[in-house]
Amino acid sequence: MTLASTHSTSRITAIGRLTALRVPPVVALSFAIVALAIAWSLAPSLFTSYDPVNGVPAQKLLGPSAAHWFGTDHLGRDLYTRVVYGTASSVASALIAVVIGVFAGGLIGLLAGFFGGWVDTLFARLVDVLLAIPKFLLAVIVVTAIGFDTTNAAIATGVSAVALFARVMRSEVIKTRQATFVESSFLLGGSRWHILWRHVLPNASRSVLPLAVLQFGDSILVIASLAFLGYGDPPPASDWGLLISIGKDYLKWPWLVYAPAFVTIATVLSVNRISRWLRKTD
């Protein structure tokens, strides 16, 4: 093979890899929306100069305009500012819920799938109990038991997701445990814990990432629903669900509901689209 043909083959291979890694426009837009939400949560003051708590009574219930992109609420507060500052609570609480679900559910599924026997039976019964209760109802039960605020709503949402992660992790662990390289490690004298953490966990956790991303969007929706029902932080907090709940009392001024609802839906749909793309590219 000549040098020119080798160079040409390398170029074709590189182009093929770039094509395979090319992000579809819809996914790129989804990443942009999620990145904007994260930026809002990290540095809200960079995106608005209004006060999210104190408004101007003379400017109450103004429609969307260049000065107030989402209009103003019944106390004269800029609604766009309220949505931006409420992002931190919504995103952080969803992240807490995902972390709880991943670690608790992942640990249960890992141990149940790897050790089998009575360990699998015990954890399987626990997962069955959790799955028997509707997820949102379970979240309501937990947040009622531990108290009404956004952090507790996040914990409740994470608890409701434990069974889902446990079931997926258990399935992947059982599949990985039967792989040739795992059996070879056993035959070569590897300890159970070494094989569990060195071989099984890294390979079995691949399917958890897309699920965690999907659960992140679902957690935003569940926590917003809990806030809508009054299980989150009270006013003057500006969680997205709480803003929708307040806006429903002013139906003559529909932007009070449409603006936070649109931001919530756009964020959740974007996260779901990213999750589907990750599953296809895995």
Rank of each mutant, 00 (worst) to 15 (best):
V213T: 12
F216Y: 10
L242R: 08
I141P: 09
W118V: 14
T150N: 12
M169T: 15
L110I: 08
R170I: 01
F228M: 10
F165K: 02
Q215P: 00
L242M: 14
S207C: 00
H199E: 10
G217H: 03
G189P: 06
I133C: 04
F186H: 12
P134C: 03
I244R: 08
A212W: 00
S225R: 01
G217F: 05
R170V: 05
A124N: 13
F115L: 15
D239S: 14
S185E: 14
A145K: 03
F228N: 10
F216K: 08
I133Q: 02
V162S: 09
L138N: 00
F186V: 15
L221F: 13
R177H: 06
F186W: 15
G116L: 12
A179C: 02
L130G: 04
A166L: 06
R170N: 03
G116D: 01
A212D: 01
K135E: 15
A153F: 06
D149Q: 06
A212P: 08
L131H: 06
T144V: 04
T121E: 11
R170G: 01
R198F: 00
V162I: 15
S185Q: 12
L122R: 10
L243C: 07
T157Y: 01
T157A: 12
G230C: 13
I244D: 03
L226T: 12
T180D: 14
G147M: 12
V200F: 09
A139L: 07
S191L: 01
S160Q: 09
L107K: 02
F228C: 10
F181I: 04
V140L: 15
L110H: 01
I155L: 09
D233C: 12
V119A: 15
L138P: 00
T157I: 02
V143N: 11
V208L: 14
V119P: 07
G158I: 00
T176E: 03
L226P: 10
A237Y: 02
K135M: 15
A212C: 06
A124Q: 11
L137A: 07
I133S: 04
I174T: 15
R198S: 15
I223W: 03
V162F: 07
N152E: 10
G241F: 04
A212H: 06
W197N: 11
A156K: 01
S207G: 13
D128C: 08
D120N: 13
N152T: 06
D218G: 14
G241Y: 05
D233L: 11
S207N: 09
A166K: 02
I195H: 00
V213A: 05
V222E: 02
A161N: 11
V222D: 11
R170M: 06
A112S: 15
E172W: 00
A124P: 00
I174V: 14
Q178K: 10
T151E: 10
A204G: 01
I133N: 13
A153M: 04
A161P: 03
V143Y: 04
G241T: 05
L243W: 04
K135C: 08
G158N: 02
V129F: 13
L209K: 10
F186G: 05
A224T: 06
Q215M: 13
S225D: 02
V168P: 01
L130Q: 10
D218A: 14
R206D: 05
A153Y: 03
A145G: 12
S207A: 10
I220N: 02
F216E: 10
F114T: 07
L137T: 06
G109S: 14
V142G: 05
W118P: 07
I223Q: 01
W118D: 09
V208I: 15
L211T: 12
A154Q: 06
G158A: 00
A145Q: 01
A139E: 09
